[in-house]
């Protein structure tokens, strides 16, 4: 464990909690892409099946359970409890255009052809594009609530911090995982446009609205 991975995990946890609290307290999921949340639930489910097969540490197990639990709770709030506030018209990204190519890529490019490994690889590739429906929805509505921008900032920051974690692990442990690194780079690059708007607008107290 290193400072980048720990702050990355905490940033990820913060994002998940911010979103869950935003929906729960405002009793509304307006502006939130339910499709992205479904993709995140799939990401955690396919990645954390090793909860059933191996124990790494209390931290590892508890964080995984929190992530999976919050992901499903968020999907439940969006599609069941507060479904009346779900903005389906603007959440129109065709997720099959993500899942099919990612599934194919996971079968073609992986570290080994074992089921858990293929699922882990699928999860890594899917996570790198899972935010696209959310970013697409914001581009369609032309704006985002400030709390939603804080959620996205923490979510984007987490994988950026993981990139530093991988530099650290390569330098000090000689460890690197090309699949995770390339997917993490793609994932972080997808946030660059948002990061620019967040820093130049939201941090100056303005509302995030498009076109910039």
């Amino acid at each position: 464990m290193n400072v980048f991975r720990l702050t990355g995990d905490l940033s990820h946890l913060a994002a998940i909690i911010i979103l869950l609290l935003k929906i729960w307290k405002s009793r509304s999921c307006a502006g939130i892409s339910g499709k992205s949340q479904i993709l995140f639930a799939i990401v955690f489910t396919t990645r954390y099946l090793d909860l059933l097969t191996s124990f790494i540490s209390l931290y590892n197990t508890s964080m995984k359970l929190i992530y999976v639990g919050c992901a499903y709770a968020t999907v439940y709030l969006i599609y069941v409890k507060f479904r009346a506030t779900y903005d389906g018209n603007h959440d129109s990204f065709r997720v099959e255009f993500l899942i099919v190519p990612v599934g194919g890529l996971a079968v073609l490019i992986n570290h080994s052809f074992a089921p858990l490994e293929i699922l882990w690889t699928f999860s890594i590739y899917l996570e790198s594009v899972a935010i696209l429906p959310q970013l697409f929805m914001i581009s369609k509505t032309g704006e985002a609530e400030t709390i939603t921008t804080h959620y996205l900032f923490c979510l984007g920051l987490y994988r950026a911090l993981y990139l530093f974690n991988w530099v650290w692990r390569f330098y000090f442990e000689g460890f690197f995982d090309m699949i995770a690194i390339v997917a993490g780079l793609v994932q972080t690059v997808l946030y660059c446009d948002f990061f620019y708007l967040y820093v130049t607008k939201v941090l100056k107290g303005k509302k995030l609205s498009l076109p910039a």
């Binding site: 990820h12 590892n60 882990w120």
Partner: peptide, 10 residues
């Protein structure tokens, strides 16, 4: 293995 040590990441 190299892969296993990746698995300790979330």
């Amino acid at each position: 293995s190299l892969r296993d040590s990746a698995k300790d990441e979330l």
